[in-house]
C-alpha cells in the first residue's frame, strides 16, 4: 500500500507534460495531503521501548511540559524504568517481552 502511494506521488514528476501546470499543482497537493509520511512517528521496538520522533510535546497530566533533552526519545513500555516516562534500559534486566 505504501509502495503504491510512493509510486503515485512520484509518477507526475517524470511523466507530466510541462505545459500542463494544473497537473503539477495536483501532484504537489497530493504529496502534502496524501502520500507523504506524517511528521511524527512512534516505533515499537520488540522487547523494548517506544521510540518517538518528530514534532511533539510530552506534558504532565496538568499540562506542564516535561524536561526533554533530545529530539528522539524512548518511552518506557515495561513499567520498570526509574526515569519514567523515559526508558533506562531496565527492560533488558527484567526479561520484558512483547511477543512480536
Amino acid at each position: 500500500m505504501q509502495d503504491e502511494n510512493t509510486v503515485d506521488a512520484a509518477t507526475p514528476d517524470t511523466a507530466v507534460d510541462p505545459v500542463e501546470p494544473d497537473t503539477v499543482v495536483d501532484a504537489a497537493e497530493r504529496e502534502t495531503n496524501g502520500a507523504r509520511r506524517p511528521d511524527q512517528s512512534i516505533v515499537a521496538y520488540p522487547d523494548g521501548p517506544l521510540l518517538v520522533r518528530g514534532d511533539f510535546e510530552i506534558v504532565t497530566p496538568s499540562g506542564e511540559p516535561l524536561p526533554r533533552n533530545r529530539k528522539t526519545v524512548a518511552l518506557c513500555r515495561c513499567g520498570a524504568s526509574i526515569i519514567k516516562p523515559y526508558c533506562d534500559g531496565t527492560h533488558k534486566l527484567i526479561g520484558f517481552r512483547t511477543d512480536d
Partner: peptide, 16 residues
Amino acid sequence: DEHVEADAVHEQIAGR
C-alpha cells in the same frame, strides 16, 4: 545521568 537516558534510545537505533 545523561547516558542512562540517551543510550536507552541509542541502543535501539544502533541494534536494529
